[in-house]
Design a protein around this nucleic acid. Structure first.
Lengths: 200, 200
DNA sequence: GTCTATAGCTAGATAGAC
DNA sequence: GTCTATCTAGCTATAGAC
């Protein structure tokens, strides 16, 4: 949409980095200003207040996650349904700056919502959309599975992803191990759906 | 050990309530003092500083979780292995003050550790112990399953529990639904272990 | 749009009396 | 052990010049 290298974008990228380093609740406007190479006053000029910074940054991060989850190398061979599912769920377990920033921010959003009712509605909506996407992908692999079974499997997989991701980021679980557990969970759920198509 | 109704315990109970309300990072010493009905100076007298408050409270909460997870009504009929497993994993999904406080505090500890390396070691150790307990219970249900498969199933179940718990507490998932998903996940993992005892 | 400077407030921590 | 009073630091937010 807008020019991706304008100053506002620079600040949002800086905000994503600071949040990944300090958390949503550890973000200090002064540190953000230093990270972006601008004054605190300019931050307030663009984002009104602390809450405005957070809202804009979380939108920015959401858009970014959408792009790295959805878009793929156009030269790569097209993925089958199962490959698409695995890509969607395993892409979150990569130790790159962008993915780390996004996962951290998402985890923070989730954790902050426990104490901040203002965040809950947006979060619940985003969660619902995500769960439905995963349910749809599961349905492509097992077209005969019931809608209820698909929805539940999707919810378990996305909730597991959040749990594993937080364990990874908090140093309780090596990244490769988290990936392996997620991958195996996909197998477990898929074989369940395949073996019991009439259930539920 | 010590007198359970002494003033220090009163402060710890108050701290658990305040953390459940505001989060670890939202805890203000003044609010805690008010909640406990004492002065801020007394808090500092007993716990040295903010970090000391957090450490003591998290120990306190850990002990409390241990007791409600482990102990049972002595008159109730003894549980079989599967019942014990379900009890361990489903007890976290109860809307009572104590469980809510414990789950909230545990989630906060987990989320805080992403940004606070001091917390990581304790947390990783506690996670390991918990995973092993669950693996042991799974092994009681399926004595022929391999140790690796048991360990992985346990890690998936406890990580899922954390993910579902945070969704519950952040208002993205009704409690009954979280329970149902957890319960079904136990079934899924158990049938997997039962159907593939020689795997891994 | 962007900066420097600073007002104003909140919250952690301590001094000293009882 | 416990309180009242207060010191101090750090942070959000704004005023005003350029």
């Amino acid at each position: 949409m807008a020019d991706r290298s304008d100053r506002r974008t620079t600040m949002l990228e800086a905000a994503a980095r600071v949040i990944a380093r300090r958390g949503v609740r550890g973000l200090r406007v002064e540190e953000l200003a230093a990270e972006a190479g601008v004054s605190t006053a300019l931050i307030y000029y663009h984002f009104k207040n602390r809450q405005g910074i957070l809202r804009a940054t979380l939108d920015f991060i959401n858009d970014r996650a959408e792009s790295y989850t959805t878009s793929r190398d156009p030269d790569a061979p097209p993925l089958d349904a199962r490959g698409e599912l695995e890509q969607t769920l395993l892409l979150e377990f990569q130790d790159t700056a962008t993915v780390r920033e996004n996962s951290t921010a998402w985890g923070e959003l989730r954790a902050s919502a426990v104490f901040d009712p203002d965040l809950r509605e947006d979060l619940a909506r985003a969660t619902l959309v995500w769960d439905q996407e995963v349910a749809e992908l599961l349905g492509k692999v097992h077209p005969m599975a019931g809608a209820g079974a698909l929805a539940q499997a999707a919810e378990r997989l996305t909730a597991l992803l959040e749990g594993l991701s937080t364990r990874w980021l908090s140093g309780s679980l090596p990244l490769a191990h988290a990936r392996a557990l997620m991958s195996e969970a996909i197998d477990v759920e898929l074989s369940r759906l395949g073996g019991a198509v009439t259930r539920s």
